[in-house]
Amino acid sequence: MATIKDISKLAHVSPGTVSRALSADKSEYVAKETRDRVRQVADKLNYKYSLVPTPDKNKLNFVLLTTLTLEEETRDEYWRFIRRGVYEAADAVNINMKRIVRPSKDIEPKDFAEYDAVIVVGTISRTAIRALQKVNANVIIVDPGQCYDNLVDTVDTNLAELTTHALDEMGKSAQSIGFIGGHRHEVNLDGTSGSIIEDVRTSAYKQWCKVHQREPIIKETNWTTKQSMEVADELLDEYANRLDGLLVASDPLSIGVMKGLAKHHVTPGRDLQLISFDDLEFASYLTPSLTSIWLPKVELGYAAVLHAETLVRFPRTWHMKNIIPGEIRYRETFNPD
């Protein structure tokens, strides 16, 4: 009979890595290439393992399905804070939340049938939602990135309202306000990308420009700091001194934007107004300090677990949107006072 040591030798990894790769609870901490190699060796040796954790009959058992890759979570703390909120709430109310799943070709809807609820983080396709609901009635989406109408319960923040409020504040003195952001894309259960979704902030910015008869100045990125620096450079080349305001869709993007502005000797707060989103910890330590819209992060994850628990204990036939509002934190890059 094959052992973990046998697999580790053939897969050229440590026994600990083999154990994690074949574990339902810890496999996500192993790189996909390594994980696939270990499982191929295990299958070849007829080593028996299960990727479905044994439910705890004395607790509610939830599963977390995140549409974000490890790279995306590493790049933007926002998503990691949401996940932290999920863990904190699960621990506080004694819910078993051991399994974390990312969409892939190995995932099937039936894998979610044994759980009391499925919490999804990010933008998942409607097809995937319907497939999940066929096997599990209790599905909750956190920060869905789009409106699912009456299809599923969601936990989100008021991004469109916050965007409009920020633009109203800047628009009192700034005439040409640009927007730097990026799009969202739906993810299917098999890990493939679905439709491209316009970010809520982008839509709200376009609507504000239309209502106030302002020229929309939009640059979209792939959500990397490097590209945000490049598009900031492009904006100043194109609009020069005419640009007197910028709304940026995340704090990590704003780091690149501020570097791009510095190349043109433009200081936010003095030469143009700048507001960002997220209010991550580093925002107040930048020079100048970054005015940023605080978004619930840990709070979203925490609320999702409590929302799911209520849904399990008190079943209903209608869907709800749970909105936790954000707020502007004024600092040096824009302060109306």
Rank of each mutant, 00 (worst) to 15 (best):
I177E: 04
D106S: 15
I293L: 13
E73Q: 15
E114M: 14
S250M: 02
W294N: 14
T224C: 12
V38C: 07
G260T: 01
H12R: 11
Y205M: 10
T154M: 02
L261K: 01
A31P: 06
L189N: 11
H212V: 10
K59M: 10
V312Y: 02
I7W: 01
E220C: 11
T225E: 04
E238V: 00
D251G: 00
S292G: 10
K226A: 12
I293N: 09
R126H: 08
S104W: 08
D237T: 05
D91G: 06
V135L: 01
S276K: 10
C209Y: 06
F112A: 03
V257D: 02
D244C: 03
M1Q: 10
L159D: 15
S104P: 12
L236A: 04
V13Y: 06
L306T: 14
T17I: 04
K297S: 00
T287Q: 13
N136L: 02
V18E: 00
R184G: 06
H264I: 01
Y47A: 03
D190H: 01
D106P: 07
K206I: 13
D156M: 12
R75C: 09
L22F: 02
E238T: 12
G122A: 05
V152I: 09
S292E: 00
R102E: 13
T221S: 08
L243H: 03
